[in-house]
Design a protein around this nucleic acid. Structure first.
Lengths: 190, 190
DNA sequence: CCTACCGATCGGTAGG
DNA sequence: CCTACCGATCGGTAGG
């Protein structure tokens, strides 16, 4: 039991915020999880709101990095979308706490932080919109589909995966990615 | 300004819970919204947790009623799914507060209430699974698709609609329903 | 539905 | 990171 680092505190805060919500978490709850007193947390961070910012910033960073990797692979539209899907799934499953807090607690940030995070989210979404629009332009995706709406639908599916997917179940992450990609490209009819 | 009813209090609680979360709402906040004191709310309801139960129960009821209507129409699988989609969209847009609280705050219910609501949610989801399985069996949907996974994907899309859809925008609710149904059945490729 | 409260808990600080 | 606090706010109650 050595001393905790600032990163440990942020990780602990992420776990609590993801499961109990920002307002459902007290500094004493958080201290209990970490094996210290609530008041001791102030030796590491300025306050509760600063913890929320740090957790959400981490979450946003993972998604941004995934989008960057997908785009920099410079593949055709459908392959890029496939990378975006599997990358997003990796983030929500490998960084559950940060991703869930980013997705669910952003409205509890102070206005300036919230605006910055919203902008990051728009930028990320735009990567999906652009690749879908490219696919439509190239004729691989249906010209009847709207790129923006389709991106929102796909992100809705991806952002909910951590809520139901059990990694110890019959499917693994790769099978899930493939199934999601198959669903969003071919639909129920196939 | 006549006296408030119990229903008024529950409606007000729904609005607050949907936007600020259960733990982000104080009885005084709620009183302010309703034009009375926080302590006056106890003349109408037993407590804050009872309000959460009442709001979520309403939300669950709207979804159950929609599923019942879709099933009782006794149409073929694809038409039933279309009714489920448009019915779900009606619920999340016409009863935003109750639907959002039901979808986001259920984990803050006490164990017994939470179990009951989870069961209701499973029952609702099973209606989607069954109609998709029927469509697969009849050959209208792809035999490669898993009914359960597909239902979860579709519900993910539907449950997020209230977060981004602007009814005053270029699309109306019917166009949205049709687009969502087109997306989940035909996918990006069409 | 208000007045006037209550004990518990909250985020946070001074000093070590 | 703990001790020892602080003022503010919380859910809730008695009595009218």
């Amino acid at each position: 039991m050595s001393r905790l680092t600032r990163d440990d505190i942020i990780a602990g805060a992420g776990r609590r915020f993801a499961t109990h919500g920002y307002h459902g978490t007290s500094m004493r709850d958080l201290g209990d999880d970490l094996g210290i007193l609530g008041s001791s947390i102030y030796a590491h961070v300025g306050g509760k709101q600063e913890l929320l910012v740090a957790v959400i910033e981490r979450g946003a960073g993972f998604f941004a990095a995934s989008a960057r990797r997908a785009v920099e692979a410079r593949l055709e539209a459908s392959a890029t979308l496939s990378l975006l899907v599997s990358g997003h799934i990796d983030v929500v499953l490998d960084h559950r706490s940060e991703a869930r807090t980013y997705l669910s607690e952003t409205s509890f940030l102070e206005p300036l932080d919230q605006a910055r995070v919203s902008h990051a989210r728009d930028t990320y979404e735009a990567v999906f919109v652009d690749v879908i629009a490219r696919g439509i332009a190239e004729g691989v995706f249906d010209r009847e589909r709207d790129a923006k709406l389709s991106a929102v639908y796909i992100l809705s599916v991806l952002n909910t995966i951590d809520r139901w997917f059990d990694e110890t179940g019959r499917f693994d992450k790769d099978q899930l990615s493939e199934d999601v990609y198959g669903f969003v490209t071919k639909g129920l009819i196939g």
